[in-house]
Computed example of a mutant assay.
Amino acid sequence: MTILVTGGAGYIGSHTVVELLNQGEEVVIVDNLCNSHAASIDRIEEICQKRPAFYQVDIRDKAELNTVFSQHNFTSVIHFAGLKAVGESTTIPLHYYQNNVSGTLSLCEVMAEHNVKNLVFSSSATVYGDPHTVPILESFPTGATNPYGRSKLIVEDMLSDLYKSDDSWNIALLRYFNPVGAHKSGLIGEDPNGIPNNLVPYITQVAVGRLAQLSVFGDDYNTVDGTGVRDYIHVVDLAKGHLKALNKLAANSGLVTYNLGTGKGYSVLEMLAAFEKVSGKSIAYQIAPRRPGDIAACYSDPSLAKAELDWQAELNLDDMAEDSWRWQQGNPNGFAS
């Protein structure tokens, strides 16, 4: 089968493309490269000895997207394309709604025109907002606390309405927790444009000397050490979850929702200590005020994905730290190295 991967040159997308190619699938990538790098396509080819087809297209451009669909016989779409930084979303919310919501609407309209009705959507644990308790189950109430999370929740509601209107669609909503790590080869990893918005690339860039120090946003949360606690999941485990979701859709699953996480939370300072251990470097940090929209603790109950997808995270915190550090050491300036 031929699978379209939107945002496939990005962090999670590129790792998922590697897993798909290694499984023998035909893969086509669509990415506008606004927060990703064309060099990742070369690295994917180096890892897999096979090059995915690539189109530099913005999914909001329906004419260009229609052209891509006309040239391939897609069976499924994995949809990563979108903006993803919580903090940034609070400063430019309309940009997030335009990219994440309008982009998905455009994609679904083109999919419908070409009768491609299997979709795996890259959602987020931010749709749960500030949960009343942890670990988080899929049945928990939703209610995002920031524009990024709301954009994901709007898309989830939109896809649910689409399924209710036409149950020939098969849609998997995958609610990620916090992806970290990199491919074992050290050839692909997280390389955000500008100053990183996520914790781990910030830590590794400080460790490699690219940034002076880490800002820890808030040390007065009700957590083990006052810093925010998150469920960090290795990006390769996360990528494999998408292949399991495709298998689920192939059985005419309808609309399904799964948490993809480890079920364990680590604080910012615990993550920092793990990377100091792996890198052998002292990582400078300063305490900064809490960011708008951040919450104290967020970690998953991933048991439904284990039961229904036959998926669970296999890589641990040491793997996450070692693989992130290998990527950053080998690519101190990211894909520009």
Rank of each mutant, 00 (worst) to 15 (best):
R43Q: 15
I44H: 06
I44P: 02
E45G: 01
E45M: 10
E46Y: 04
R51H: 09
R51V: 08
P52K: 08
A53S: 08
Y55F: 15
Q56T: 11
D58W: 03
I59A: 01
I59C: 05
R60M: 12
N66C: 11
T67F: 07
F69K: 01
S70H: 13
Q71P: 08
T75R: 07
V77N: 14
I78G: 10
F80W: 09
L83Y: 05
K84W: 00
V86H: 02
V86W: 04
V86F: 07
G87Y: 12
S89N: 11
S89L: 13
T90R: 05
T90I: 06
T91S: 15
P93H: 11
P93N: 14
P93M: 08
L94M: 12
Y96F: 14
Y97I: 07
N99F: 02
N100K: 02
V101P: 02
T104D: 01
S106A: 15
E109N: 11
M111I: 04
M111G: 02
E113K: 14
E113H: 10
N115R: 10
V116F: 07
K117I: 04
N118P: 00
N118H: 13
N118G: 01
F121E: 01
F121P: 03
S123R: 03
Y128Q: 07
G129I: 05
G129C: 03
H132F: 08
T133S: 11
T133P: 00
P135Y: 02
P135I: 01
I136F: 03
L137D: 15
S139I: 12
F140N: 11
F140R: 10
P141N: 09
T142P: 00
T142G: 10
T142S: 13
T145M: 14
